[in-house]
């Protein structure tokens, strides 16, 4: 049994962290939101150079065929830096979907280019993922139905609370595949996307905890740092506890996606629910600890706050995931 990061995984996280810190993501995100994705696309190509975009791609198609835990590590770091772009879609869900479909022609067309970073992809999975993020930068727009996979045709733009999530409606384009096997592949993709989304939420929550602890140690009111007040301490302690105990569920879900026991969907849902709740608490507390300054864009909190508000209900709502868990745990089985 191994449920902690290997030295290699920690090094991988550190390399990513360093690269993203140097890339000045806040500025990249501002330009991304203003429909200038070019600095962001540069970062995405750096991700490709580090292998991130090929993690979920089989070696046959030029990828690394990595363990899902490696994808968790990467996505947590991307969430920690609030990188803009279709992270869960392009890095996790689409490669999983195409691989699971097993249509060599489709794989050959798209997977090598996703792995090398030549292109990014986005997709919708109504009703869980109703809109496509960043369709204009994606050379591949997919629309997954219950038993169909189609190319997606971007339509009207929509404003998200997170202005780096440039959403569009998508309508049906050319049919790529249909049948029960598609349904099963889509289910896999949804789990992969949900797990990537959960990992991003955890990373974003950690970023907010770190920012809040820093601020509380500096900001003085009533003659002492606000971090000396017991109420502030206890709020932040609860945030830390929430994040600390959500994380092992990410790893457990990654193992489940790798090994595909009958409980895999349950484990992904547990990770998503716990990470979303922990991140939501981190966001609420960060704003409360920062006070009014948290509202100012200059505080820099907004990237994480709005990302969390958008992602907590993406890739399956809390209620939907809780329903999946209850269905699984009432179906016998003592694991």
């Amino acid at each position: 049994m191994i449920l902690t990061l290997s030295t290699e995984q920690e090094q991988f996280a550190t390399v990513l962290h360093t690269m993203l810190t140097e890339a000045d993501i806040p500025t990249v995100a501002q330009r991304w939101a203003a429909d200038d994705p070019s600095p962001g696309q540069l970062v995405w190509r750096q991700l490709a150079d580090l292998g991130v975009t090929g993690l979920a791609v089989p070696t046959r198609w030029g990828g690394l065929a990595a363990h899902p835990a490696d994808i968790v590590v990467a996505c947590e770091e991307l969430g920690h830096h609030a990188l803009p772009g279709p992270v869960a879609e392009s890095i996790a869900a689409i490669p999983t979907l195409l691989t699971a479909l097993g249509d060599d022609a489709l794989c050959e067309t798209w997977l090598p280019r996703l792995a090398t970073g030549e292109l990014v992809g986005t997709l919708t999975v109504p009703p869980h993922v109703p809109y496509a993020t960043d369709a204009d930068v994606a050379a591949l727009v997919l629309r997954a139905g219950a038993q169909t996979l189609r190319l997606g045709v971007p339509g009207a733009r929509l404003r998200s609370v997170d202005d780096t999530r440039r959403l569009t409606e998508v309508i049906d384009g050319a049919l790529l595949a249909d049948g029960p096997a598609v349904g099963s592949a889509v289910a896999h993709a949804l789990d992969a996307g949900a797990l990537a989304c959960a990992a991003q939420l955890l990373g974003a929550g950690h970023a907010l905890l770190e920012a809040s602890v820093r601020y509380a140690g500096q900001r003085t009111q009533f003659g002492r740092p606000v971090g000396q007040f017991q109420a502030v301490k206890h709020m932040l302690a609860d945030v830390a506890i929430g994040l600390e105990f959500a994380r092992p569920l990410l790893f457990a879900a990654a193992v489940a996606l790798a090994d595909q026991p009958p409980t895999a969907a349950r484990d992904v849902s547990a990770a998503k629910v716990a990470c979303a709740d922990a991140a939501r608490r981190a966001a609420r507390t960060a704003l409360q600890v920062h006070g009014a300054i948290g509202y100012a864009r200059e505080s820099g909190l907004d990237s994480w706050l709005t990302r969390i508000w958008a992602l907590v209900r993406a890739w399956g709502t809390q209620s939907w995931h809780r329903g999946r868990i209850m269905a699984a745990v009432t179906d016998g089985g003592r694991t």
Binding site: P127, P130, L158, R159, S160, W309, A314
Partner: peptide
């Protein structure tokens, strides 16, 4: 006030991030 709006957004589900606009079937 916070609770009220959090419930509303949870009711809107994935459509919450856009304020529930337009294409929510």
């Amino acid at each position: 006030d916070v609770a009220l709006h959090e419930v509303a957004l949870d009711l809107l589900g994935p459509y919450a991030e856009t304020g529930g606009r337009r294409t929510d079937p």
